[in-house]
Design a protein around this nucleic acid. Structure first.
Lengths: 348, 348
DNA sequence: TACTATTATGAAAACCTTTTCAGAAAAGCT
DNA sequence: AGCTTTTCTGAAAAGGTTTTCATAATAGTA
């Protein structure tokens, strides 16, 4: 709650820069507000001479329609909300870039809310009141809220995540399974690795599960039995992955390669292995997923899967906009992945 | 413009999820909308028993006040706008993280607009109509618009940038001069370098100019004459910096160290030098600025200045909020920097 | 108890657009 | 020319909230 003097101040300030309204434009052009609205939105014919006067008045007063008034009458906010668990790191920025560009391109505004710090605050400020649709990342909205949104038919698009039980929102993600398969095949075929650790990401990421399937299938097709001891939870996060590998080393688990959950995790894996004096890729090969920008700078440079992150963001927005404006979207879009071979796998 | 059938669809859909209004809450609680508003905002006393009934009604109807209606009457959007030239890279994400966290913390929403792709689009969708204040990065708003905003007294905070001629907005940035001085002193004193290239960033960044002053002062205090041949425009960008260094090598400029504009630029410098077969730091020492996350992963690991990027973002929001709510802010805040010595300068 | 001072509540206006409805003017027809 | 159709425009309502003003009810005072 504001103090009295603050409120006073804000009111006083406000008067200073009160923008022109449609009524003032109308008065100046000698027409009614309705007519101004019509030339503004091209929603009905007005005689050219009148239109000209109105346009002049608009220009002279530097008039811009007040978004709140429009929202109120049109019941549209013209904004898209993005809910994500974290903003920095290596993965989210390019994603954000794609989303922002496409949102702008579609004529919407972008509202961003990261849930990391304030998940417990209870306030969920992005919803049907202030957006026309939501793009949601795993771990940023709980299932109850998703169910609620589904029930009221609110446009939602899920990113790198499948719908919770009983509801179905459209989703956009990448070809995780074939990507993982390419990686594991390469480790087995080109480098003869057979004890390959899989550091899985959070359960809620559909991505993780698909990568695991690719991992299992690749193993199976080479006649290597699946060993649960080699699958560990490592998150999509440098620190967690580092800890996980450290623990495996302490436990004396025998492995000659690590498929990290993603590139961020791979960085943690490499740190843990170096610290333990293991040679990469001599003793242990390491591969990641995503091909974030710095993957080629770390040493050894990281063999990984290039996921078109930015494009995933763009596609997500396209689908959401279609859902908002046309009422339908592709139920599932998988963008293709590509293997990027560098040195951490053992290639020269 | 939407087609008729699209509009039809949207109208139809809208009815499905029409949220409860304050009037319905009032009716259910057997009071007037005014009273509901009062319990909602604590703006006047209501007898406890009535308040109780209202709260129940609110909960039962899952009521949330409609932001647009509030904006309209209050003349506040409760949103802060962020205008920046680019979203990805290594510098912006942590900044964005700090800004987002603090914006949320202050009870505002965050609207983001990156100007990179659509500077020419003419539309500048973030302004006094849809935000209560703006945080602006260099190169994302032209001077005319800044002048306009200043004239109408709209709250604006400048980041890493000084106000254009004739107007003065509060600004937040880091201790650039002393940071640069530390770096150059170190190169001279610890590693005996004397032909130090300075790759400056964009002119509009106040940062660049202060770093140059630090560079010059450090040189002067060691009796090394300033050589304009050693100062080149390199941007805050990997590719530009890479090109600049390549060109200097072609031109046969003699140098034994490079102070890149920032860490992103330093990456480009290192790439160019490696490509030309120069040893880093043997032949040429390289130092950056910012200490972005990957600086410790590149090889050789980068000696740089740690700028509290995230904290700059937080501070910027704090100042802007103060400007919005109290009408005043610190005219200039400089956050302290710290030298981070790694290997690219020649240290072991 | 009668009167004033205080407190709690409601009615209505205001914020700024868009849109419907109806009316006026113009055009088209016989 | 008289009538119908079309085209253009304005008045008014609606959208959901907050706030001012007035009134009714309560508490306080003598």
């Amino acid at each position: 709650m504001k103090t009295f003097s603050e409120k006073l101040f804000m009111n006083e300030l406000r008067k200073k820069y009160r923008p022109a309204t449609i009524i003032e434009v109308a008065r100046r052009a000698g027409v009614s507000p309705a007519t101004v609205s019509r030339v503004l939105n091209g929603t009905a014919a007005v005689v050219p001479e009148t239109e000209q006067r109105v346009r002049e008045a608009i220009a002279e007063l530097n008039f811009t329609p007040h978004p709140a008034a429009r929202q109120l009458i049109n019941q549209r906010t013209n904004a898209i909300g993005l809910l994500l668990p974290e903003i920095s790191g290596e993965f989210f920025p390019p994603m954000l870039r794609g989303i922002e560009a496409e949102v702008r391109n579609s004529g919407y505004d972008l509202l961003i809310h990261s849930t990391q710090e304030n998940l417990n605050s209870g306030r969920r400020p992005l919803r049907e009141h202030n957006t026309d649709g939501l793009i949601v990342f795993p771990e940023s909205v709980d299932d109850a809220e998703l169910h609620r949104l589904f029930k009221i038919g609110f446009p939602v698009l899920l990113l790198h995540q499948s719908s919770p039980e009983g509801i179905s929102f459209p989703i956009v993600t990448v070809e995780n399974k074939s990507g993982a398969e390419m990686l594991i095949n390469h480790l087995i075929e080109a480098h003869g690795r057979r004890r390959i650790v899989y550091l899985q990401g959070p359960e809620s990421h559909q991505d993780s599960r698909w990568r695991e399937r690719g991992y299992r299938d690749a193993l199976e097709s080479h006649g290597i039995p699946f060993d649960p001891e080699l699958v560990e939870y490592g998150g999509f996060d440098e620190a967690e992955a580092c800890d996980a590998i450290r623990q495996m080393l302490i436990d004396g688990v025998d492995f000659d390669a690590v498929f990290a959950g993603d590139d961020d995790a791979a960085t943690g894996v490499i740190a843990a292995l170096k610290q333990a004096g293991r040679d990469i890729p001599g003793d242990v090969a390491v591969v990641g997923f995503d091909d974030v920008p710095f993957s080629r700078f770390i040493s050894p440079s990281l063999t990984t899967i290039r996921a078109p992150i930015e494009q995933v963001g763009r596609e997500a927005v396209k689908q959401l906009v279609s859902l908002i404006e046309k009422g339908h979207a592709e139920p599932e879009i998988l963008l293709p992945t590509e293997i990027i071979i560098r040195q951490s796998c053992g290639c020269p």
